[in-house]
Write a protein that binds this DNA or RNA. Structure first.
Length: 263
DNA sequence: ATGGCCAATATGATTGGA
């Protein structure tokens, strides 16, 4: 079973690339971030035509997340618990059933938090605290689940082309990294790092300043696996080549393969 | 962080992104 996540930076601008990539990688479950449209404007039909069920949690102009699944959804729920006043469309949880049980997938678009001296940074940290609380609660069920999305977190200096330049950035500040590490400490596994210790493996390159041709990137999109999911991990990867396409998103897709058959 | 960006919006200047 292949789980993938991709910040598409507007699903309507990226539809052609999305369809090509879906055919090429054929993931079973896909988490999309920054769809940047309301639910009614989401281009469902061409995606459904490829065999996907579609669930969206959009809003006007900004943010917005979606789940695509070849397997039917048993349940779908928007919004991360813990702050009823947070109306940003950044979280959508779905449960799909496969042959040997269910898999819960949480699609998330974690706040950027820049500039750090504004109210945006405490909002990010609070969101991360809510995500930790959510994850602790879900771990109690001892069922396989995946946190998938744009975390806007550079976990370690190995995950950024020039750590010095990012020391004061909301994606790399110690309180940000500490909260990401807290997710690891409670038992979640970074799928990509479970299969590769290669440095300079990035998921985002800025549109500006020749970042892509110079490989000035950062690794901020992640798949975190619960113990029952990481037991099933067989491979993971970054679809770096997608960044070189015409009219590319500034993020590329990442994926993980989980084998739920008997060992 | 930056050699020059990109997307959405009653739209041509502003906001947000990372």
């Amino acid at each position: 079973m292949r789980i993938a996540t991709w910040n598409v930076n507007s699903v309507r601008q990226r539809l052609d690339q999305l369809l090509v990539w879906l055919k090429e990688r054929s993931p079973d479950v896909v988490c999309l971030q920054e769809i940047k449209c309301v639910d009614d404007a989401f281009p469902r039909e061409p995606i459904e035509a490829l065999g996907y069920n579609v669930a969206t949690h959009g809003q006007k102009t900004f943010n917005g997340v979606a789940l695509l699944s070849k397997l039917p959804f048993e349940e779908v729920r928007p919004q991360l618990a813990g702050d009823p006043e947070d109306l940003h469309a950044r979280f959508l949880e779905g449960v799909v059933s496969h042959g040997r049980g269910t898999l819960r997938v949480a699609c998330l678009y974690l706040p950027n938090g820049n500039p750090p001296q504004t109210e945006k940074y405490p909002y990010k940290l609070k969101w991360m605290d809510r995500l930790l609380a959510y994850s602790k609660e879900r771990l109690k069920s001892e069922e396989p689940f995946v946190l998938a999305g744009d975390f806007n977190v550079i976990p370690t200096p190995e995950d950024v082309y020039n750590p010095q330049a990012w020391l004061g950035d909301a994606l790399f500040l110690p309180p940000t990294r500490e909260r990401f590490q807290a997710l690891i400490n409670i038992g979640l596994t970074d799928a990509f790092r479970a299969v590769s210790d290669e440095p300079r493996q990035y998921t985002f390159w800025d549109y500006q300043a020749g970042a892509w041709p110079k490989n000035n990137g950062i690794r901020i999109d992640h798949l975190l696996l619960s113990p029952q999911a990481s037991d099933r991990l067989v491979d993971a990867g970054i679809d770096r080549h997608v960044r070189g396409w015409e009219k590319a998103s500034d993020h590329v897709p990442i994926w993980a393969d989980l084998d739920f058959n008997n060992r």
